[in-house]
């Protein structure tokens, strides 16, 4: 019974982890290549969920919902890159933080105006509505699908970045943007591509999370902060680091939330433990991050020296 529980919590952790990876991949690439801090990345995740929910409500098709989310968030990312953020790339991190902080407030309110303050509904595709049974162990198929989709995207990103010319440019850009520009590559175009790709991945994460979280204004911020923790632990600008750190954070956070109350119940009164447990579990990953940074200030898998400026 406890093995059951532990196993399913572990899978929940992996599932959170792959979602975090989808967000972290874009954020860390954008940081690596443009040295740009995008706090509004969580807003793209939220937009993805809403675009998906809107498409789903109109068509009842989850596939179309995914297309709408990925395309919509990617498009918003493209527009942001081209029209709103270009001037900020050369500015210091403080201005970037401030401007994208403003964008978060803007997008949250925009969503509230269009879709209202309460949460909207999107359900998992019918084919994935059930559970999967492996030798007596059951687990929701949809969550399995998220893990599989996330890993597939991770693999795709790996191929894109390691095996293609565009990927080579992205890697080179993350190490030395000036060098890439000197090679005659249009760095602006590369920036836009990376930014839109990151936005599309965030949108994908949003729509995939839609059926299992509450789709509402402000849903992006808690996820954003977890994502920031991920890319710091992983090492700024490092995709590989983002992948491992996302899984670690997902699992640590989920297991912490699941088992912390139980552990605490043995230490204190039940009601207090039940209330305080989840909150203390939430602190766990930040403690973990502090320990990682205290030991390795560059993160677990530092991408390169330049990106940690």
């Amino acid at each position: 019974m406890t093995t059951q529980l532990a196993l399913s919590q572990l899978l929940n952790g992996l599932q959170l982890g792959v979602l975090l990876f989808l967000l972290a991949a874009g954020l860390t690439l954008v940081f690596g290549i443009m040295s740009f801090v995008n706090l509004a990345h969580g807003s793209l995740y939220m937009l993805g969920a809403y675009f998906g929910a809107a498409a789903f409500a109109n068509t009842d098709s989850f596939v179309l919902a995914i297309i709408a989310a990925v395309g919509g968030a990617g498009l918003v990312g493209l527009l942001l890159d081209r029209f709103a953020l270009t001037k900020l790339y050369a500015r210091d991190h403080l201005d970037q933080v401030l401007a994208t902080f403003g964008l978060i407030l803007f997008f949250n309110e925009l969503i509230r105006i269009i879709w209202g303050p309460s949460s909207v509904f999107i359900s998992a595709p019918k084919a994935l509505g059930g559970t999967i049974d492996i030798g007596g162990f059951t687990y929701p198929s949809y969550r399995f699908a998220i893990i599989a989709a996330g890993l597939a995207v991770a693999l795709g990103l790996y191929v894109l970045i390691q095996k293609t010319r565009v990927g080579m440019l992205i890697r080179a850009g993350a190490t030395n943007a000036n060098m890439v520009a000197a090679l005659g590559v249009n760095i602006k175009w590369l920036n836009t591509l990376v930014f839109a790709l990151g936005a599309a991945l965030a949108g994908l994460a949003g729509v995939m999370a839609g059926p299992i979280v509450s789709v509402q204004p402000g849903m992006g911020e808690p996820v954003l902060i977890l994502t920031l923790v991920v890319i710091i632990i992983g090492g700024l600008g490092s995709i590989r680091g983002a992948f491992f750190a996302a899984l670690i954070v997902g699992v640590v956070d989920t297991l912490g939330r699941a088992f912390m109350p139980t552990i605490m119940r043995s230490l204190m009164e039940r009601s207090t433990a039940d209330a305080a447990g989840p909150a203390l579990a939430s602190m766990l990953i930040y403690l973990f991050m502090a320990v990682v940074l205290a030991v390795k200030p560059q993160g677990l898998f530092p991408a390169n020296v330049a990106a940690t400026r």
């Binding site: 201005d95 401030l98 401007a99 403003g102 407030l105 925009l110």
Partner: peptide, 14 residues
């Protein structure tokens, strides 16, 4: 009103 505040902050930064 937060919509306008968000835009305001964005332009302050810019």
């Amino acid at each position: 009103w937060m919509l306008l505040l968000g835009l305001f902050i964005f332009f302050v930064a810019l």
